[in-house]
């Protein structure tokens, strides 16, 4: 009997405190989208750029591989210094695109995006070069970096994700 009432009290205490704790935590839940750094608009632009750099064909491209997740998470990590470059770069890319085609980059049809990048204004070239570099890192880098889902690029290249290697059963002379 005593045991049961203790349990009830414990449960009561837990439930009682739940309300306070949850109100503090719900605000986290409102954080929309999976991004650490990008706004949803920026993410659309960057993802479209990534897919141009490594398009899907018989093998998946950068979008399927989630290459943008690599860039996004590094932008709050090792690439912190590049946050403003990404912010202004994607805005400039969309602005130039709007001026020329009346739409942001991600809204253009794929072939029109390609044509746009092939005749990129000089001012946007350094930004695009940087995105190329990071896309290559994410897509062809190890799957652990989140830009190469299921090691899709390594499998495309015919590289076993984890090789098979046994060890030699050596013995040191005079031991054992």
């Amino acid at each position: 009997m005593a045991k049961r009432s203790a349990l009830t009290r414990r449960r009561f205490l837990q439930v009682a405190a739940t309300a306070a704790a949850s109100s503090a935590l719900i605000s986290c839940g409102r954080h929309a989208g999976p991004w650490r750094f990008f706004t949803p608009g920026e993410a659309r632009t960057i993802e479209a750029l990534c897919e141009q750099i490594i398009p899907a064909d018989q093998d998946p491209g950068a979008t399927w591989a989630g290459t943008i997740y690599y860039i996004d998470s590094q932008l709050v990590g090792h690439f912190r210094k590049l946050q403003s470059t990404y912010r202004s770069g994607s805005a400039a890319c969309d602005a130039v695109c709007r001026a020329a085609h009346g739409q942001p980059f991600a809204e253009l049809p794929f072939d029109q995006q390609t044509a746009f990048l092939q005749r990129l204004p000089n001012t946007l070239q350094p930004f695009f070069d940087m995105v190329i570099t990071h896309t290559m890192q994410g897509f062809y880098g190890d799957a652990r970096h989140d830009g190469n889902r299921d090691a899709v690029s390594w499998r495309m290249l015919g590289i076993p994700v984890i090789p098979i290697r046994g060890r030699d059963h050596y013995e040191f002379p005079g031991k054992g």
């Binding site: 739940t18 949850s22 935590l25």
Partner: peptide, 8 residues
Amino acid sequence: LGLPAASL
């Protein structure tokens, strides 16, 4: 109180 509550 708060931590078990949050967990709950």
